[in-house]
Amino acid sequence: MNPFEVIYRWFTKLFGAELADYLAGWNCTTEDYTGTNQFVSIGLIAFVVALVFMLVYYYVVNHPRFNRWWSWLLVLIGVGVINLFIGYGINSSNLEAGNIENCLMYATSANTMNIDNTQPVSSDDTDNDTIKKTPITFADKSFPLITKANCWGFGLANFIVSAMWFIIFSLCFKWWSRNCKYSPF
């Protein structure tokens, strides 16, 4: 598994398994991860944004009046917010463009809807022979599994991931900064 995907998967609860599968490149036809892994591109963006902001904070701005813990926190929030919108924006536009396949987008199996499809579906249908043994699959478009809330959830995950990068970069590279060497601590 791609390392970026591993990191994002830690936060699956925030944005849901379906969106995670979509981003990982799940293909409904082949039933495998054969599509483009978007975790890599989004993760790289978060990585680069955090790196650039760290470099700008410690080496370009490098200001003796902007070296307090709260100034560093402000930059961290800035990095996080940018990535939140990137994460949200990418998924939201895919969602609106209908790029997410139905098998991920909507419930496709009964157990998903908690329906016991081994029971007769109508009073007339009492003949045991007529009872369908195989699960009924259908797409209930009134209950999408990926919504805007999931996109925001992913944005939040992206916020956290980028903040983590920023913290790691800060701890690694702050020592050579003239004015912000001891920021945030």
Binding site: V61, H63, P64, R65, R178, N179, K181
Partner: peptide, 14 residues
């Protein structure tokens, strides 16, 4: 980009 006394702080750090 360093104005007034920030100029001295910057120089002290340097």
């Amino acid at each position: 980009m360093y104005k007034d006394w920030a100029l001295l702080d910057n120089e002290l750090n340097r």
